[in-house]
Amino acid sequence: MKIKTRMIRKLSMLSAGLFMVLTSSAQNKGLEIANKAEVADNGWKSYSNTLTMTLTNRNGQQTTRQMHGYFMEVKGDGDKSMTIFDTPADVKGTASMTYTHKVGDDDQWLYLPSIKRVKRISSSNKSGPFMGSEFAFEDLSSQEVEKFTYKYVGEGKANGFDSYMVERYPVSKSSGYKRNVVWFNKANYRPEKIEFYDRKNSLLKTLTFSGYKQYLSKFWRAHKMEMVNHQNGKETLLQFSKMEFGIALTDDDFSQNALKRAR
């Protein structure tokens, strides 16, 4: 009896050890893939885009929003970005400026043209919807490696491409997700698909990337991003009509003065 218990204990210790080795290797491999994806997209320096967001509700009714923005890579930290809203008409000219950080909350300012006021806003709202869409703020902010922990789960196909499947867990407690599953294209590490699981670990949304184009013979950018919410039946489609790399941007283009005259 004694021997048996000891054996079981030993066995269970062994299996626990094995499990730990396996998880840590799965974590390492997951992080490795996330790092490779980041390296693959390193050095884009600056770009601008114009996009249309189409919101579709359960009954198939559609509304659109248009916006444009410009982005600058910051060495050693997150990116800087400026987004200007073009439609609907009542928000035209409203602009938001974000300094993303690898660790901690981002810095975010909003410019309200009707009262000429720049407001520093709370960036801890990660899970809330962006402009009434199915995209949460955290889905659209720059996806720094440090914002998640990782676990490699296997291989699979997404959009017809062989992909690595990596689970990632948001570090921030204010995230709306327990976990995401990302399909990274094996050939170039661009994301093909992301599944978002809510805090109760049930499937909330699926994001599919398509219409990829390669810029400066390195950087892959999806021209279509389709988010389907499985729980409320709503969809949001982002279509990028114009993307331009290598535009001349400096820190001066991300100052509060620049925010006030952003058009």
């Binding site: 709370s122 801890s124 709202n125 899970s127 809330g128 919807p129 009434g132 204010s174 809510d198």
Partner: peptide
């Protein structure tokens, strides 16, 4: 103080 995404409704 902002309670964001109140009761997961999306409202702030």
């Amino acid at each position: 103080y902002t309670f964001s995404n109140l009761f997961r409704s999306g409202a702030d």
